[in-house]
């Protein structure tokens, strides 16, 4: 069997890459993709601990996280399409309407 900490390390690494994506990329699409990556690394950690403790509840939670990720992407991309039609750009640096 593979030690649990290897899975958690991989999960942490993928989460960090996702954080870097959110911080570095300027296209809103790429930010969404990085958020998906972070959700997935959290899912990996949850499934790892479900296996570690032989408890099914974490897998149920992963199931709901996947569902909510799908809903979030649908709403987010719909918003993005509307913003693009208004501004002809998905650059998040250009979205400054709410700036005080």
């Amino acid at each position: 069997m593979v030690p649990t900490f290897l899975y958690i390390g991989l999960s942490a690494l993928l989460f960090t890459i996702g954080v870097l994506g959110v911080l570095l990329r300027r296209s809103a699409l790429m930010v969404f993709m990085s958020i998906e990556l972070m959700l997935n690394s959290a899912n990996l950690a949850l499934v790892t601990f479900a296996n570690e403790w032989q408890s099914i509840d974490a897998q149920i939670m992963v199931f709901f996280v996947i569902t909510i990720a799908a809903a979030e992407v649908a709403v987010g991309l719909a918003l993005l399409v509307m913003i693009f039609r208004r501004r002809q750009s998905t650059n998040i640096d250009a979205m400054t309407t709410l700036k005080g």
Binding site: R25, R26, S27, L29, M30, L80, V81, F84, S89, T90, N91
Partner: peptide
């Protein structure tokens, strides 16, 4: 759909 492949 958006053609936003290279937006950065």
């Amino acid at each position: 759909l958006l053609g936003a492949e290279r937006d950065e």
